[in-house]
Amino acid sequence: MRALIQRVTEASVSVDGDETGAIGPGLLVLICAMQGDSAAEADYLVRKISKLRIFQDSAGKMNRSVQDIDGSVLVVSQFTLAADTRSGNRPGFSAAAPPAEGKVLYQYFADQLAKLDLPVARGSFGADMKVRLLNDGPVTIWMDSADR
């Protein structure tokens, strides 16, 4: 699985003008299941992301996790993280998991974060979404479970 994590002051997602999820301080996680991914990859990213120390402590150092700050997480599916841009000018997305599998892993990922007592808001899998965010820092981090 691939994830793009952004430390945010606030973030929201809407579909057809209706807000489906919103958070205050915390993380916006754009997530993509790849071909061959399973719950093991989602579990790995949940562990890493929930403990990722990218929030400032009292000394101004990035030393606190989203759990430490009692923050929230907005999880948004984004198959375009699977983009292959090596050839031509039109990205290919064949490395992404098929939609049915991707949806299951997306839901599993968000559910596992929620089991850690993190407030989790969600986008709408497969929908044309509008995402608003106020990136804090800015801090943006890329993770791929294949890199472990």
Score class of each variant (00 low, 15 high):
E41Q: 15
D37V: 02
A59W: 08
Q67F: 00
V29A: 08
R64S: 10
D43N: 14
S65L: 07
R64D: 10
F55R: 08
R64G: 04
C32T: 01
S38K: 08
A39R: 13
L30F: 14
M34D: 03
L28A: 11
K51R: 14
L27H: 09
S38M: 02
S50I: 05
K51D: 15
L27A: 12
Q67D: 07
N63V: 11
L52M: 15
D68Y: 06
L52V: 05
L28T: 08
G36V: 03
I31K: 01
I54S: 08
A33W: 02
V46R: 04
A59N: 15
K61N: 15
R47I: 00
V66M: 07
I49G: 03
R47P: 00
G36S: 04
G26E: 12
L45G: 04
V66C: 07
K51I: 00
L28I: 06
L30S: 04
A40L: 07
I23G: 13
S50D: 11
R47K: 10
I23T: 13
V46Y: 05
E41A: 10
F55V: 05
R64I: 04
K61G: 06
K51N: 15
S65N: 07
I31T: 03
D70S: 13
L52Q: 13
M34G: 02
G24M: 09
S50H: 04
S65M: 06
F55N: 09
G24T: 14
G36M: 03
G60E: 10
D70W: 00
A33D: 04
A39V: 10
D43C: 04
D43T: 07
S50N: 05
P25D: 14
A42W: 00
N63W: 13
K51Q: 15
V66N: 05
A33Y: 03
S58K: 15
I69W: 11
D57I: 11
I49Q: 03
K61R: 15
Y44A: 12
I49P: 03
R53E: 14
A42N: 01
I49A: 05
C32R: 01
C32I: 01
F55T: 05
D43P: 00
D57M: 11
D68F: 07
V29Y: 04
K48H: 08
Q67T: 11
M34A: 03
